[in-house]
Write a protein that binds this DNA or RNA. Structure first.
Lengths: 213, 213
DNA sequence: CATGGCTTATATGTATACATATAGCAACTA
DNA sequence: TAGTTGCTATATGTATACATATAAGCCATG
């Protein structure tokens, strides 16, 4: 039997991801308790976990609120994500198995298909598949865990209405180059290409965020 | 007024760091409750946080135990730590201010002094000062946070009796080279030197851990 | 003697009751 | 009128009571 607090974490995260809860919103334990039909105890444990995950912040006696990231913090986040994604690409190229290669090719193909159909939603999903394949190929469990946390953290902002026209094709090109470097076991190039790839994706968000303030 | 659960996190961590609680040990909520003189509620919240921090692991209805790392997991951990430390060195060299330079030199000097006195305990502290100075110089808050978490995670194993004869002098030499690279704004070199430096430190732990199994 | 099912003990998971600090509002004073 | 002080409401922090799942021990049965 799964714990209520674990369910709650997912539910509250979903409310953040879906935009129902926005950065700065206050979370009242009693309100959440009524809304989810459980007592305050599991609510508090869920909040605790989400604070540790960086989604919420609390001040003693002041309750929890959805964390607000400044433009600099978001930039810092992407900088680390880019470094670790680059690391994953390097490691993947250093210890590439046939099965991992196939997974990466599969992810790449999904990206191509989605880009051809100019379907940003499908592309977002395919993009995750491609990157996840590289993460697994890297074979470092701790790295995979960190990248998943970063991904979840960044996902909060996926609803921001930012322009992606023409970006899909370019992204696919970059993916192809990265995959080639990995397949050629050129770790240094894979690393650099991947880092630039992520930073390009992230470069627009901070400025957009600053514009929203 | 600080929260009891926050105090508890530090206290339990200390019990792990000091070796009182060893990997694999079971944590009973009622026992901790009596020992620390608080109810189970803050105990549970502290456990929750420490699970998120990677110090404990829980299975539903089975309670919490101090996390046991396999040799591979520890190796993965060091691999990520090395990459992020390298990143910090690179960033530090790219945006070095005079005040940060002084902090790094100060840390380096403390390492030299401790090594000259052949005092491993003092060296461990000085080592932290040196690395922390570089972290701050990098100026990426998220990176600093991640490195602190990794440091705390690795600290659990600082009590393992491993041979350090001759390592102190070598470590100081490496620190000097890293500092020089940063001061010369040679980010690529600083990155590589730092990565190798950390991996050297970590290389022995997994094999030692394997021997203990 | 071994094995399987039932009973019971215990520890986790959840709910509720109680304590206390903070904030908002009102009344009083300068 | 502005500012300050004290009361009160409310939400957080903590303790305790209750529910339930797991596991261990014991008895019965083959």
């Amino acid at each position: 039997m799964p714990r209520a607090s674990d369910r709650l974490i997912e539910q509250i995260k979903n409310e953040i991801f879906s935009g129902l809860l926005k950065p700065g919103d206050q979370l009242e334990e009693a309100e959440l308790s009524k809304r989810f039909g459980v007592s305050r105890t599991p609510i508090r444990e869920a909040i605790r976990s989400m604070v540790d995950g960086g989604f919420l912040e609390t001040r003693p006696r002041k309750g929890a609120m959805v964390r607000v990231l400044t433009a600099k913090e978001l930039n810092d986040l992407f900088e680390v994500a880019a470094e670790l994604e680059g690391m994953a690409a390097r490691l993947a190229s250093e210890s590439l198995t046939l099965s991992h290669k196939k997974s990466i090719q599969e992810g790449l193909q999904q990206c191509k298909d989605a880009a051809a159909k100019e379907d940003p939603t499908a592309y977002a999903a395919a993009n995750l598949v491609f990157h996840a394949a590289i993460h697994r190929a890297a074979g470092n469990e701790w790295l995979i865990d960190q990248l998943e946390r970063l991904q979840a953290r960044i996902n909060v902002y996926r609803l921001l209405p930012y322009e992606v026209v023409g970006r899909l094709e370019k992204s696919v090109e970059e993916h192809e180059q990265i995959a080639d470097a990995i397949f050629n076991k050129d770790g240094a190039t894979a690393n650099t290409l991947m880092r630039d790839h992520i930073m390009l994706q992230g470069a627009r968000l901070p400025s957009l965020l600053k514009a929203l303030e």
